[in-house]
Deep mutational scan, measured.
Amino acid sequence: VRLVQFQKNTDEPMGITLKMNELNHCIVARIMHGGMIHRQGTLHVGDEIREINGISVANQTVEQLQKMLREMRGSITFKIVP
């Protein structure tokens, strides 16, 4: 398990697509080339996201998580399992 932190201070999309796997874990499905996450190089396709800013992603839908990420500003921390 590791923590990945980055800054999001604009309306620029993060450039990641999330999916739920068969165990209902949140997985990074795709990283858009040239997007914020791609430029930082901190997340990778297949990484499992456990928490966003200390909030568990368990029992949340992809749509709920994407909305939460769109609305966040400032420092964002993901707890991930590579």
Rank of each mutant, 00 (worst) to 15 (best):
L65I: 15
N59D: 10
I80L: 06
E22Q: 14
L69H: 01
L23Y: 15
H38D: 10
F6C: 12
M20H: 10
V4R: 04
R50Y: 05
N21D: 13
E12G: 09
F6W: 04
N21W: 02
E22I: 05
R2E: 11
I80A: 02
Q64I: 13
V4Y: 05
G34I: 02
E48Y: 04
P82H: 05
I49R: 01
L43Q: 00
E22V: 08
N24C: 05
R39P: 02
P13V: 10
I55A: 12
Q64F: 13
K67V: 13
R70S: 12
N21T: 10
Q60I: 05
V57Q: 01
T10W: 08
V28Q: 01
K8C: 03
P82L: 04
G35F: 04
E71Y: 14
L3D: 06
P82I: 04
E22K: 13
R50C: 15
V81W: 07
H44R: 09
M14V: 12
K79T: 09
E71T: 10
N9H: 11
K79W: 02
G54R: 05
V57H: 01
V57D: 00
H44I: 05
M14W: 10
I76R: 00
N53W: 00
E22S: 11
R50N: 09
C26F: 06
N9K: 15
Q64H: 15
R70P: 04
I76M: 08
K79D: 04
R2V: 07
L43F: 15
H25R: 12
K67A: 11
V4D: 01
F78L: 13
N53I: 01
N24T: 04
E63A: 09
Q5W: 07
G46S: 02
I49F: 01
T42W: 04
T17E: 12
N24I: 00
F78G: 00
E22D: 15
H25V: 06
V1H: 04
R30V: 05
P13R: 05
Q60K: 13
L43R: 01
E12W: 03
G74W: 01
G34N: 12
P82Q: 14
D11R: 11
M68Y: 10
L18S: 01
K67D: 14
H33R: 13
L3Q: 14
Q60P: 00
M14A: 08
K19V: 13
P13Q: 05
E71N: 10
N24G: 14
L23Q: 15
G74I: 00
K8T: 05
N9T: 14
I76G: 05
F78I: 10
T10M: 13
R2W: 03
P82G: 08
N9P: 10
I31S: 01
E12M: 12
Q7E: 15
V4P: 01
I55K: 13
Q64S: 12
K19D: 12
F78E: 01
I76T: 04
I27Y: 13
V1I: 15
